[in-house]
Design a protein around this nucleic acid. Sequence first.
DNA 1: TCAAAAGTGTTCCGCTTACACCCATGC
DNA 2: GCATGGGTGTAAGCGGAACACTTTTGA
Lengths: 221, 221
Amino acid sequence: MRHKIAVTVDCAVFGLDQDGLKILLIKRGIAPFKGRWALPGGFVRRESVEEAARRELKEETGLDGVFLEQLYTFGSVDRDPRQHTVTVAWYALTHIAAVQAATDASSAAWFAEDELPKLAFDHQAIFDVARERLRGKVRYRPIGFELLPKRFTLTELQRLYEVVLGRDLDKRNFRKKVLAMDFLVDTGELERNVPRRPARLYRFDRRKYRALERGGFEMWV
Amino acid sequence: MRHKIAVTVDCAVFGLDQDGLKILLIKRGIAPFKGRWALPGGFVRRESVEEAARRELKEETGLDGVFLEQLYTFGSVDRDPRQHTVTVAWYALTHIAAVQAATDASSAAWFAEDELPKLAFDHQAIFDVARERLRGKVRYRPIGFELLPKRFTLTELQRLYEVVLGRDLDKRNFRKKVLAMDFLVDTGELERNVPRRPARLYRFDRRKYRALERGGFEMWV
DNA sequence: TCAAAAGTGTTCCGCTTACACCCATGC
DNA sequence: GCATGGGTGTAAGCGGAACACTTTTGA
């Protein structure tokens, strides 16, 4: 007779607003860790682990169709007090607005990445790995766009990179580099109603990016 | 009542010999896929997933204390015909000699990476991901040394990189770069009994590497 | 007219790349 | 003495980093 192990998924969902990088947490309604904040997630059913992650995200936060990548699988024997539970952790990127619209304002909330409450299970460790993965990945894959609205200014894009990487970037060099690899398209539109010179709005062109990707390309911020 | 899922581990073990990159396979003695070659692995017991991977490696191949990193977790519903099974896949690097010594010569064997037999389950897909991970990781972390004997010549090191990356490298540039980041130590010894000018033997200095690593360093071949 | 951010080029340096010949050994 | 790989330096070009001022808008 075989040792039984439960399988769950957990998602570290990142968003970006004026104040910086945010993460989406759920307040647990049941034991264990009732009342504690936790990463959205739950048990895997008769479905693939990715399907489970997307289903739980939708059920608990209303999010659908977001950028989602597998992060790491956490399998210490004692990470769940109830039973031996292995969790497949994921990280997701989205616009904060997508959640505000979708959530029933109930138990989900955004927290600044450096002001997380005490989390259930080993979710703090999962978050730490996710944060590090995001920092690393953003430098060689243009996944950051998932955090921005469809149209954005170059300054917004730069701020995103500064927040994720945790250091300041040079404005001129940033623009030069980011425009050089041409998957950014000038929409021709400008910001409206800003008390300063309005900035051009750009969008990320996935088609162009895919093309470059095949040509083998590496560079980034 | 909850849907039951089995949890396994599988390891893609890489080795290097004169002919190139090799991978270690096990011939399955039981159904399903009885008689087929497969990655070493098995069910997780009352232990962490990493402990399970190391235990299975030791039981099935005799390998102990090898370099081992988590790769990806495969969780399609139908990847195991018996039942819903999620597998946490790992990749390992070792000297081929370590296995020849340890194995009871029974059911484990090395295969050239480009001449694999038909594998059990979705192990071919796991291998493909592992191969790609190795190619990527070797460029920014000095994990390749795990494949070489303790003392090696620069030509052996270069061949390793050429095999893993799948392209030729310039001898002078390679030596310049690899010696520049100084975690390679000249042991002062030379090859013996070669029908040509004997090469110097170097070793990888983990201490020095850790020091560099903290200083934030990136470059590689 | 003021405040605030947008937008824009050049120089310097270091790394990457390309490239060819002499050397030490075993047989 | 011959075959085999070991070992070495330089020049050119490219990409990354540093750096300051003018422009446009709303109030």
